[in-house]
């Protein structure tokens, strides 16, 4: 079965100083939410994921465990692992990531001594200037 998508981008860089499964979970989660991996897609086996990325199979297994716990993927015995078709779950996960992004955005504004609104305002004026 050919997969029309990639689970992880070809040039995905692993940072060896951080837990690898967390990096995998984060990246795959984003790709599911953004629709790069469509709902209902079949995921590669743990073995193929590990062999393809040259990581320990327990890392790959743990990645899937974590994604499954979040409800983003579902394993059907004897058939394989699939991306969930439940939009609600994906939407929920998207909200989590969005909250995280906003938090980061606010933190970035905070380091500049301005509010998030001011930062957005600046962006609007700035892009107007360029146009």
């Amino acid at each position: 079965m050919d997969q029309p998508y990639e689970l992880l981008p070809e040039q995905f860089q692993i940072n060896p100083s951080l837990p690898i499964y967390e990096q995998f979970v984060e990246a795959i989660q984003r790709r599911i939410i953004s629709g790069l991996i469509p709902p209902g897609s079949r995921l590669p086996s743990v073995r193929d994921l590990a062999a393809g990325r040259g990581v320990n199979p327990t890392t790959a297994a743990r990645t899937y465990q974590e994604l499954e716990r979040m409800g983003l993927i579902v394993t059907y015995r004897g058939q394989g692992t699939f991306v969930t078709r439940e939009d609600a779950v994906i939407g929920e996960a998207r909200k989590v990531i969005m909250r995280k992004a906003i938090k980061e955005f606010k933190a970035a504004a905070d380091t500049l001594g301005i509010t998030a609104e001011q930062l957005l305002e600046f962006d609007k004026e700035d892009s107007n200037d360029i146009l």
Partner: peptide, 15 residues
């Protein structure tokens, strides 16, 4: 080396 490493992974996956 890459081939060897990936063969090792394949073997390990069965646990």
């Amino acid at each position: 080396r890459e081939r060897i490493a990936s063969a090792v992974v394949g073997e390990l996956a069965d646990g």
